[in-house]
Design a protein around this nucleic acid. Sequence first.
DNA 1: ACGGACATCCAAACCGCTTTGGATTTCGTC
DNA 2: GACGAAATCCAAAGCGGTTTGGATGTCCGT
Lengths: 345, 345
Amino acid sequence: MSKGVNLKELSQRLNLSQTTVSRALNGYPEVSAETRKRVAEMAEKLGYAPNSQARRLATGRSMAIGHVIPRSIHEMMNPIFLEFIAGAGETYSRHGYDMIISVVEDDHEEDAYRQIASRKKADGVIIHGPANDERRHKLLQELNLPFVVHGRIPGAEEETSWIDMNNRRAFERATNLLLDLGHTRIALLNGLEHMDFARRRRRGFEDALQARGLTPDALLMRSSDMTEPYGCDNAMEMLKSDNPPTAFLVSSMISAIGVARAIGQCGLKTGKDVSIITHDDALSFLPNSGEVPIFTCTRSSVRYAGEKAAELLLDMITAPISTPKSLHLDAELIIGQSTGPASSN
Amino acid sequence: MSKGVNLKELSQRLNLSQTTVSRALNGYPEVSAETRKRVAEMAEKLGYAPNSQARRLATGRSMAIGHVIPRSIHEMMNPIFLEFIAGAGETYSRHGYDMIISVVEDDHEEDAYRQIASRKKADGVIIHGPANDERRHKLLQELNLPFVVHGRIPGAEEETSWIDMNNRRAFERATNLLLDLGHTRIALLNGLEHMDFARRRRRGFEDALQARGLTPDALLMRSSDMTEPYGCDNAMEMLKSDNPPTAFLVSSMISAIGVARAIGQCGLKTGKDVSIITHDDALSFLPNSGEVPIFTCTRSSVRYAGEKAAELLLDMITAPISTPKSLHLDAELIIGQSTGPASSN
DNA sequence: ACGGACATCCAAACCGCTTTGGATTTCGTC
DNA sequence: GACGAAATCCAAAGCGGTTTGGATGTCCGT
């Protein structure tokens, strides 16, 4: 509990070799129980803790996982990312791993990965927010750096390990619920559709419509960063149009709040005059729970996804297997206060 | 650009010693320009990048900054933290530092700091969200680990380096604005008041009231995690009371959105029937800008604070000085659509 | 009494880089 | 042409761990 002794000093105090002390502390069998106890006690007394740099150098494992996030004010810099990180970080620390986060300029992302690999900064990385034309996985495969994708890479589902929720299915179910309630003019406020998750959600939406013989109306589909004003402005514009929607399907609670604001500003009532279903990532600062949640939603905890992604990645690192593994989470469809039958006006 | 050579191989290929190659690459003067060029070219060609663990071990500097955040679903796990991190992270990477984030169980926070110090995981840390009875700085001083506080530690302002915004002043000004508009029943929806920033905000609020001979009404002051429902529920309750407030002073945009929702649900109009001023941390996913911002607010970019905090810390690490430095940011008071004169009903 | 199987422990090499303390060359000066 | 300074470069010693390849001692069966 005092300052910092190193292995050498510790072993001298004990009249033992560094080898033995190291083994005793790391649980190797070739040390007598008595010696191990002595070592442990002295280590505790002197406040010994192995220098992590030295250990990493000696073992060749950096005991860290990297997350590189482009600095842009887009999707990734949002609370969903944070919640994922929180989940993953917890798993890391439980396994003795560090989490290192690199915030880089957008055009230096590739560099960042290269550095992680060549300078051995991390034993693996997580790919966030795969795009439709994703290529990071190619780079990582080439660099031989283990990785797990949060989301799915179109066309590379078989050759990569990933964890994702069933975006298409979730939005299909949500759309069906609205259709069942009698809504036929449904607007979709989607995330950026160059991202894979948003494309899948849109597909789910369109599939559901078409299955009932309805044609998606391009005027009712928007795609952007999921901010609050994005929800409000677009909803406002649509509501004021000639042929306004009676329901909104929204990709994020944050934008959904904006939509609700627009509805209010139009003098309408959410859940009565206009319905909203939103996807809910179960963010801790935006709770949508309680007896009857504010928003009807498709819910999937992104924090949980973070935990699982981390576990998957650590597994891959400690016991490399050839075949990729993946985990498909299902979103729950939860009825809240923001949906109701289409008003017949 | 190929696999990974190390310094030894590189130097052999060049018929130079490791010393010379190392010096050439690191910009030391005792290398001829010609040699330096040769080295640089070969390094580029072979794709040499120094192993960071080895370098850290040799230099004794870990080139990383630690952020330990308790796992709790409280204040810190919120988007404000993320935005701060984004700012800090950018500064770190610009200076070649890594950012390591430890998510720990609440009661392991101290352990986490001790580990960072004893195992040399980071060269410094940032203290987030100082509480009224803060003690982390004591530990860090004892551990001899450089740190910067985001916020201020009551009673330790002189002996610690920190960066903070003028919370008291900001809320005093906001309150004065409301008073000038004729509001006398003003509600305060504050953050958790065991945190220093929230206490200061409250003080600013109360000071302003008392300066005009008004007594703060305990019924109109709440303190909690700054979620959306927190804003809505409390506002709703107050608005339905016998003697409702005509204005709200809110500690976070997120809760302010909830307040606006409550106002709408009561059939009232924000900025007309009821005014709102909120603090705005300039979160990227909750923009409150435009010609006339939605919310009248006290604004201070927490991302900027992150950048500055990081710079301050790196300065302290590279050029240790005895006297602490600190930076006091002023929030802007920006008029938006959510305030208006007290309605005389 | 002897050889082998275990149980313990250790000296030294190694991980890949930085840095100390020279060694060697080059060059301007007197 | 000798000499000290300046310019270059290098061998080797760390940094603080882990791990290899024994060395030593103990116990047992025959």
